[in-house]
Nucleic acid binder design. Structure first.
Lengths: 233, 233
DNA sequence: AAGTGGTCTAGACCACTCC
DNA sequence: GAGTGGTCTAGACCACTTA
């Protein structure tokens, strides 16, 4: 019987995980209340709460006031993945990072992008195109829009010297954004720039960031063939 | 001055976010200790701790004992995204979900897959191929390997009646796994099955799940063109 | 050695929701 | 109405790290 003491929230969490895994508590079933578990383990209810809250965030439990806690039926897996900071990612591979500005202009965006950027009618945005290199190899093709009305200082920045992303994260606070992952087929121009064949399947990340109700920037990253984004669950 | 009281951990968190966003606390800078903030806000230290812990998990703060808390230099790093449960995803769009088994056989896997699956030399694995449909349209092509040594019951399952994923999540507990996202170019066969053109860029998710030190299953999901995985940060 | 975050406790009250 | 999770408190001790 002399089981290890279950006093820390980590050990409570581990024990609950074990019971779920061992099917002592089956999917969809109720588990004892926090107070009961606290009594069983001989710890405070707050400790049990801390443990169960983590399991609920991980999607392993469904918790509701009054109703109690159930083992989730479909352990909807939530993966937390690190959004790559290109410079770090490339340098972590032991390669030299380099950003090359390909184009820069102030122009009216296409209708779809104007909506995405919440631009006023006829408003001109800063359009940037650039290439991130890992050593001598093309790594990511970046197409970006920035709203100079929201970020006036941007017009004076020399993006030959610093990549837009690095400038933005250090100079413009933002509140949130959204990210989409998808795939595309390399166009002729993309193939030329990324040094691959037209039609190659390429991984794409699109990100938009905002502050308040204003859209700061919208960026599309097209990765060279073979790129994989990896995480654990 | 009659500012709203800052007593709940959510309001503490919001106020800290505001100060970071307003550059009152700049990236890389130390912020006051938990005790100081608790005194300022007139709440318990545990409440401040709860708020700051969340911000650290979100990547906005770097916290270390004795060293204190700093505003993170690179604020955007982590996004949590829900791994799609195909049936739910499709039904949420108001379409009928359907799984069609394309192939099933017991055979020795290619060398690379044998390593991934931690299969013994010469061991035969269950190979499944199937198609997930949204209404009448192909949605995802699934290629899967399952180790019957780890999951003996699998040999008796009728995968015409239930998709491998749904059977596995309800019958086999697992501890963890890893996921990779990438892109590929549609092969002739993939194009035929997914009803697209060869060469189309397709989004790919590869997932492996394990329990203990045994690999349960390894799956490759190839999505029909146009698929986007979306999340907020 | 000392300061800071990490955690635990015992108790309390609140908010939500099911009955 | 009552049971459950959600949160807050005041205090305490621990663990880690830096000075």
């Amino acid at each position: 019987m002399a089981a290890r003491q279950i006093r820390s929230w980590q050990s409570v969490q581990q024990e609950v995980r074990r019971r779920i895994k061992a099917r002592e508590w089956r999917p969809g079933e109720m588990i004892p209340s926090e107070a009961e578990l606290a009594a069983e383990f001989g710890c405070a209810r707050a400790t049990v709460n801390r443990a169960l809250r983590g399991l609920a965030e991980a999607g392993l439990l469904d918790r509701r006031r009054k109703a109690g806690s159930r083992v989730a039926l479909h352990p909807v897996r939530k993966a937390t993945l690190d959004i790559p900071v290109l410079r770090n990612e490339i340098e972590a591979k032991g390669l030299a990072y380099c950003y090359r500005l390909l184009a820069r202009r102030l122009c009216a965006p296409p209708a779809e992008m104007a909506i995405r950027m919440k631009a006023d009618a006829g408003e001109r945005l800063l359009q940037l195109s650039g290439l991130h290199l890992a050593g001598a190899r093309p790594y990511v093709l970046e197409g970006r829009w920035i709203n100079p009305r929201v970020v006036p200082e941007v017009e004076a920045v020399d993006f030959e010297a610093i990549s837009p992303n690095e400038w933005l994260v250090t100079h413009v606070p933002f509140e949130g954004g959204d990210i989409a992952f998808s795939a595309t087929s390399a166009s002729a121009e993309e193939a030329r720039i990324l040094d691959c064949r037209p039609g190659d399947g390429l991984f794409v990340i699109e990100r938009m960031t905002w502050s308040g109700d204003q859209v700061i920037t919208s960026v599309r990253l097209v990765f060279a063939p073979g790129y994989r984004m990896h995480t654990q669950i």
